[in-house]
């Protein structure tokens, strides 16, 4: 194999700030434990309702089989221990997100990297980016450090919509918080509605995790994982 004489040197850029890297891994652990322990709690009553109340004799809009043991924390049925995991890591999830948000406002990560520009939402731009994704090209060769529009939308969606939604609906499930802050339940139209929205938010976060991991693998897992550990990211040679 002949190496072209004019091959460009490997370009390494600083991609992720320290705050982003720390939060990413703390949040990754918290989210996975929240999904597993949440599935365990769901298994105690795998029916969902809309409104203030809902129990076995009321109409459930969704009834699912129980999640299998490989998906739940703990692996065998134990509601009390599932709750211990869930409630401990709820604190980690919520306070880590709060710290990350404040830090990312201060270091301008949100403003510089996640701000969606109107031009990026133009149908033509979306279509071009979509075709690039199908060809496994995820980066703009002219500006490889920038997130593409689908990355921006999914990160903004998770950070500013889905995670806060999961936290607020989770708080609304607490009878103590409901008494203190009734607006928390009113936002969703009742505790059982909050429980349904909590489940939907968790499902969408799970979907994000699956798509995110798939794209990390497709984009080059070693380079991607290293960049989230050290901050340094090698620009793919083909500009992909």
């Amino acid at each position: 194999m002949d190496a072209p004489a004019t091959m460009e040197p490997v370009r390494v850029i600083r991609r992720h700030k320290l705050a982003t890297r720390i939060w990413h891994w703390v949040n990754a652990v918290a989210v996975i434990i929240m999904i597993g322990s949440g599935a365990m709690i769901f298994n105690a009553h795998p029916r969902l309702y809309w409104g203030q109340y809902g129990a076995n004799f009321d109409h459930a809009w969704l009834e699912l089989p129980r999640f299998p043991g490989w998906f739940t924390i703990p692996a065998t049925y134990n509601l009390a221990l599932g709750r211990r995991w869930h409630l401990f890591f709820a604190l980690v999830l919520a306070f880590a997100l709060l710290a990350f948000m404040l830090w990312s406002l201060a270091n301008r990560h949100f403003a510089k990297d996640l701000r969606v520009r109107a031009a990026e939402l133009a149908p033509r731009h979306l279509w071009t980016d979509f075709k690039a994704h199908l060809a496994f090209r995820f980066h703009d060769p002219a500006n490889p450090g920038a997130y593409n529009i689908f990355q921006k939308l999914s990160y903004v969606g998770v950070i500013f919509v889905l995670l806060p939604l999961a936290i607020l609906t989770g708080l609304a499930l607490s009878p103590g918080m409901d008494a203190a802050w009734p607006w928390l339940t009113d936002l969703w139209g009742g505790r059982q509605s909050a429980r349904s929205v909590h489940f939907i938010a968790a499902s969408l976060i799970t979907l994000f995790v699956v798509v995110h991991l798939t794209l990390v693998i497709l984009a080059g897992p070693i380079n991607e994982v290293r960049s989230m550990l050290t901050g340094k990211w090698r620009v793919p040679e083909d500009g992909a």
Binding site: A44, H45, R47, Q52, Y53, A55, N56, L79, P175
Partner: peptide, 12 residues
Amino acid sequence: TRHDCVEGWSAI
């Protein structure tokens, strides 16, 4: 009042 079971269901 609303009765909330640890399992997840509620009844008023």
